[in-house]
Amino acid sequence: MLMAVRNQFKVSLLSIKYAIMRELLNKVTFVTNIVFMILNNASFIIQWVVLFSIKDDFGGFGLKDVLILWGLSAMAYGFSRFFFKKAFSLSETINTGKLDSFLVQPKNVLLSAITTDVEPSALGDILYGYIILFIYGMNLKNFILLTIYGMTGGLVLTSISVILNSLSFWFSKTDVIADTGNSLMINFSTYPDGIFKGVVKLMLYTIVPVGIVVYIPIQVIIEFNIIKLSITILFTIFIVCLAFLVFNKGLKKYSSTNLMVARI
């Protein structure tokens, strides 16, 4: 069992390595994608700096809190898009019969399918997270927490995408639902949770779990709390398992196609 898990990770890492090698074929594009993503994220912070020059407090968040909120959101987004890019277009993989080549291999189909490509600009998001941490206050504790939360957030974003994209096994054109779900997560994760009240707030801690993967982590980074840390980790484990469950259930409905496709 342990050996199988080790071998699975080895293959997934090798797959990511080869995908990076493909992106590095054009080094200039690779680097500019990263740099421009950092600049793009920075431009949003400028808007917040302007807003904070008018008002000191937004939903209980000061400028530094908003900075780390953006840093963490960018990291989670970057982590998911860099390592699991194909999770966000999984419905296309399902609909065009591209799962065939993964199904005939003795490895986990989902992991194989979502690790065959990387998004270079997402590396800019990850780096942006650490740059923000420098501005916020770099120390070992914050570095470890941001890294952990970047990973848990990324895994949750990936899992939500896998769950919604897996609906393609049952229904057609579900990519729109998946895109909407992902957009909801990203949009809410860049605003202080204090500005949301009532039903919206309840929604952010349940069906659009931004609260668990972004707001609670911000609270932990500001003031460490082991219970809150555990909540996020347990939720991540739960949603990752759910993603595997839904995907594997859907796999039984997979109908493949005879379209001519190439692995690119």
């Binding site: 080869y18 080549s101 001519m260 190439a262 692995r263 690119i264």
Partner: peptide, 14 residues
Amino acid sequence: GTVFGQKEQLWTHL
């Protein structure tokens, strides 16, 4: 082993 003439299994950049 499987070979699907209509579907590539190889990474084209490698």
